[in-house]
Amino acid sequence: MLNLVRASMAALFCATLTASPFALAQELPATLKKIKDSGTITLGHRESSIPFSYYDDKQQVVGYSHELALKIVDAVKRELKMPNLQVKLNPVTSQTRIPLMQNGTIDLECGSTTNNTERQRQVAFSNSIFQIGTRLLTRKDSGVKDFADLKGRNVVTTAGTTSERLIRKMNEEKNMGMNVISAKDHGDAFLMLESGRAAAFMMDDALLFGEIAKARKPGDWAVVGKPQSFEAYGCMLRKDDPQFKKVVDAALADLMKSGQINKIYAKWFTSPVPPKGLNLDFPMSPELQALFKNPNDKAIE
């Protein structure tokens, strides 16, 4: 009994110790220096964020964000005059991406990461690379045309997303009597929609189009409703590293101003993409066009 109490005290003590800032005070070297010294740059990528960063049918990482990441790597090679720089790929999830960035496992993450002020406390963001609106995915014959049609029905969304906050808030404010289900990831959320547990799936529109591209019968599904919010995606890098951020931002601004970005956009959003060769048919929004004309790293709140 006494031993037990002692053991638990020891465990708690260890926990507090790790939690103290002193144990972690060891600073990482600036990213560019780290890349130069090790001869490698490690990119964080997603496994199923279609069409941003995901595995294709040959288990290769592909996607819009990944292609931009590779362009940034080219710029880093030029900056450091290291044409043989090695690129390592490290898969991340929405839970692991920030800690892995902070502890130096990955140097750059381009996926579907929203730039917001909470995250800016932990990491930095590049010039925004994409902009989404939060909308609804539903079966074409479900009768759901907009958010108002969801009264009294089950709606699924992914846990921890802006969509979740918005739909819960809307439910309370407008007294809509919806049952909001929080699925653990986009794939699970779509499964709940597909199996009939929910009438609609609220999420970033680009990801919804991505889910359609993965679906067994893409023709059954439609993205509907007026966007409830807009969010900017950015590439994530370590905080307080102005030299590296400058290289990343300049590389992205070049792509946007030279118009190269339009080709990359067309390749992933208005042409057939792996794994099923489906065209997302997602034309560039006026907001995104404005962003490309005037690259910036601002969060939309």
């Binding site: 926990a15 790790t18 939690a19 929405s94 839970q95 920030i98 800690p99 909470e118 995250r119 406390r121 932990q122 990491v123 699924v156 846990a159 921890g160 997303t161 906050r165 289900i181 929080s182 699925a183 653990k184 699970d188 709940m192």
Partner: peptide, 27 residues
């Protein structure tokens, strides 16, 4: 949590997502 029930671990993940304070939540 895999079927969407917001039990302790799910809430922790959720707090992490909302606040980006991963370690505090998990500790």
């Amino acid at each position: 949590l895999t079927v969407g029930l917001l039990e302790l671990t799910a809430q922790t993940r959720q707090i992490t997502e909302y606040t980006a304070q991963t370690f505090e939540a998990f500790i």
